[in-house]
Simulated scan of single mutants.
Amino acid sequence: MTEMTILAFALVAFIGIATPGPTVLLALTNGSRYGVKRATAGMVGAVLSDFVLIGAVALGLGALLAASEFWFTVVKWLGAAYLAFLGIMLLRSKGTIQVASDDSGMATPVSTLAIFLKSFLVAVTNPKGYLFFSAFLPQFIDATMPQVSQYATLALVFALVDFVVMLGYAQLGAQAATFLKHSGAVWLDRLCGGALLALAGSLALYRRATA
């Protein structure tokens, strides 16, 4: 695998990740509600999911979902239901920004583990991620060379790009929180909640490609 191949992969990955999806929307809302420091837990969860997805694809799970209508449907509806749940929770949110309570040392109702798990579960229950990596990664793999090290390299590059993009969204959310009044924070939550519901709907309607 050449440096140009890695650079091309990183560029394509950046374009794909920067397009608003569930994990970057969560990074945005986490940044606005909890600040960048606590939002990092969600970024770590999303990055861990990158390794899980790419490892699963390397082991053939992506091919299984592409071939099995049953397992594809199971994972799809789990992912759609979870996204819909998160979207509804944001729509019902009162726009509470918890950065101030962090600074005062008071306990906040959402734990770091919960923030981590939310982003992790959003990614690992999305079958489109497995199918995307199944179609995307082989284009950058040299079949004449050991594949384990190549998949590991691509996973590291993708995770790094993913973290940087999510950090940017979290920073954007945190900056927005400093300018938004309570009503503005409510509408930011509702906007992201509506986007997550739309993504849940698109996932529910998503169909496995057939030969």
Rank of each mutant, 00 (worst) to 15 (best):
V52F: 12
K94A: 13
G194S: 11
F158H: 11
L197P: 04
L65D: 10
I17P: 04
A170W: 00
S183E: 14
N126G: 13
T153V: 14
F70V: 10
W71A: 01
S32I: 00
R208S: 11
A152V: 15
A209D: 06
T5Q: 09
A152E: 02
L61T: 13
T29L: 09
M145I: 08
F120W: 13
Q98I: 01
A66T: 00
T5I: 09
V24N: 15
L26Q: 12
T125W: 02
A18E: 02
A209E: 10
A46H: 11
T23C: 11
M145V: 06
A198C: 05
T112H: 05
L7E: 06
S101A: 14
P138R: 07
Y82Q: 00
A66D: 12
S149N: 10
V157H: 11
A13T: 15
V122Q: 08
F179Y: 07
Q139S: 10
P146N: 06
L188R: 05
L28N: 10
D142Y: 02
A84C: 06
A18W: 05
V47Q: 06
T29S: 15
V148H: 06
A10I: 12
V74A: 15
G60Y: 09
K37S: 05
R92C: 09
S183Y: 00
F116G: 02
Q150P: 03
A123D: 10
M166C: 14
L11F: 15
L113C: 03
G55M: 11
Q147H: 03
I141K: 09
T178G: 01
F9A: 05
D50Y: 03
G87C: 09
L7P: 07
L167Y: 13
R38K: 14
A10S: 13
G16H: 02
V110T: 14
F163Y: 11
M1V: 13
A67L: 09
Y130F: 15
T178M: 02
A41V: 05
L78A: 15
T19E: 03
V186E: 12
M4F: 07
G184I: 12
V44C: 07
G95Y: 01
T5E: 04
A114M: 03
A67P: 00
G55V: 06
L48N: 07
V24I: 10
Y169R: 01
N126I: 12
W77T: 11
F140G: 00
L137V: 15
L191M: 14
H182D: 14
V12C: 01
F70G: 01
L26F: 12
M43W: 04
F158E: 05
G194M: 02
L117S: 06
G105K: 02
G105F: 00
R207K: 13
L131T: 08
N126S: 14
F140I: 01
L180R: 10
I15W: 09
P20I: 00
A170D: 08
G194I: 02
A155W: 01
L191K: 02
V122M: 13
V74D: 08
L113E: 00
V99N: 01
